[in-house]
Computed example of a mutant assay.
Amino acid sequence: MRLFRRLLSLLILAALLGGGGLAWLALSPVRLNASPLDFQVQPGSSARAAARQMVEAGIDLNPWAFEALARASRSAAALKAGSYEVEQGITLWALLQKLTRGDVSQSELAIIEGWNFRQLRDKLNAHPDLRHDGAGLSDRELLQRIGAAESHPEGLFFPDTYLFSKQSSDLDLLARAYRAMQKRLQAEWAARDPGLPLQHPYQALILASIVEKETGRAADRPHIAAVFVNRLRQGMLLQTDPTVIYGMGERFDGNLRRQDLLTDTPYNTYTRGGLPPTPIAMPGQAALQAALHPAASPALYFVARGDGSSHFSSSLDEHNRAVNKYQRGGR
């Protein structure tokens, strides 16, 4: 069957090329310096330029033959830029078809729920398959380059696994993640529960980021969101540790002390009312849904049980008993 396909390809090529010499050359394997071998075809490359780039990458081919084959098969204008991977045994014809189809090699980067933007930038800068166009930019410059209207980057990028052609720009990946977050945030905002104490989608994003950081068990998200929504409605302080930690930045050493809770920053929800000025992390879809569809609950407090779940209370007395039971070992 393989021999039949090879002969059929040869006949088609011979018909296209008007002779057998170039056809036989087209179906002969090219030599590679390594296998697999990665190479890049730059945007706007002609067949001759693409052949030169492949030779420089370690593919032992005749640039004239590749260009002649591309022109004779009417493929010269159809070559697609991108990053490609080939293995030993590939023929000149198969190589041309690969570039014509745009059969690029891909890599991936996972953006994790709860990451902050500094963590995301670190991952982008360390990824070997990305082109680091944003590495030297400030956060504000980076947002301008991807077309974001916001002035602070935190929370603006949707957590997901993103596939990309190798040597794509990190700015392109960030732009995709930004658009993904805008799409999901606007959809959830349009379908939000009535009567929420939120004035615009950005406030929902802030609340969702807090829910993301406070959640130990997925099923608790709507209940945690309900606590914060109820507190906002009643004008109570949110008093959530993750916002304090975010406001401390690199000063946080892993231990949150009483003095930290008393030290005022724009993100200290023990000293300032309402939501903090920006998100504190990147919330996932479930956190967005919880923030805009909180549980129907009167709870105003919660405390970690120690197994990843939380105990919810609607009064301070009940909350204090839960704290004594789950965090102080009381009975």
Rank of each mutant, 00 (worst) to 15 (best):
V41E: 02
L130F: 08
D139E: 14
L79V: 12
D193V: 08
R305W: 06
A322K: 00
N62C: 09
Q239N: 03
Y270H: 05
M54Y: 05
M248D: 08
L99I: 06
L69M: 12
G102S: 12
R331C: 00
E214A: 11
A291V: 06
L173D: 08
R321F: 03
F157P: 05
R192S: 06
A226P: 00
R251W: 02
S309Q: 14
W115F: 03
D307I: 07
A81D: 13
S107H: 09
L124D: 10
Q327I: 04
V30T: 08
Q97W: 05
A204R: 05
A78W: 12
S9H: 12
S45G: 04
A286T: 13
P194K: 12
T263L: 08
A204T: 04
R328S: 01
Y202F: 13
Q203F: 04
R71G: 01
Q42A: 15
A149N: 04
A149T: 13
G20L: 15
D60N: 10
M181A: 06
T215H: 09
Q239F: 00
A180M: 03
Q97F: 00
P197G: 06
G58K: 10
G20M: 11
R272C: 02
S83N: 13
G249I: 10
R231K: 12
R6V: 05
F228S: 03
P276H: 08
M282V: 00
N62M: 01
R184C: 01
W115I: 12
D170L: 07
L173Q: 08
V229I: 15
Y326N: 05
S315F: 05
F312L: 03
S313H: 06
Q53V: 04
K80C: 01
T243I: 08
A77F: 04
L92P: 04
L7D: 01
T243Q: 07
R192V: 07
N268R: 01
G44Y: 05
G134Q: 06
D260W: 11
Q234Y: 03
S151R: 15
T91K: 03
Y267H: 08
K80R: 15
G306I: 10
G102Y: 13
M181H: 10
V86C: 09
D103S: 14
W93V: 01
K80S: 06
E214G: 07
D133R: 11
A15N: 10
A204F: 03
G329E: 07
E87C: 01
D307L: 13
D317M: 02
A26S: 14
A72N: 12
T271V: 07
Y270M: 05
L69K: 10
Q186H: 10
I210K: 11
D103Y: 02
S73Y: 05
L143N: 02
A190Y: 05
R118M: 09
P222W: 02
E154M: 09
L79M: 11
Q167K: 14
Y301N: 00
G308K: 13
P63E: 12
F158D: 07
W24D: 01
D264I: 02
A299T: 02
G134C: 06
L256Y: 11
F39R: 07
A180R: 13
G330A: 04
P279E: 13
R101N: 05
S45C: 02
S45W: 07
Q106Y: 14
L16A: 14
A26W: 14
G20S: 11
E318S: 15
M181K: 03
R118V: 14
A23K: 09
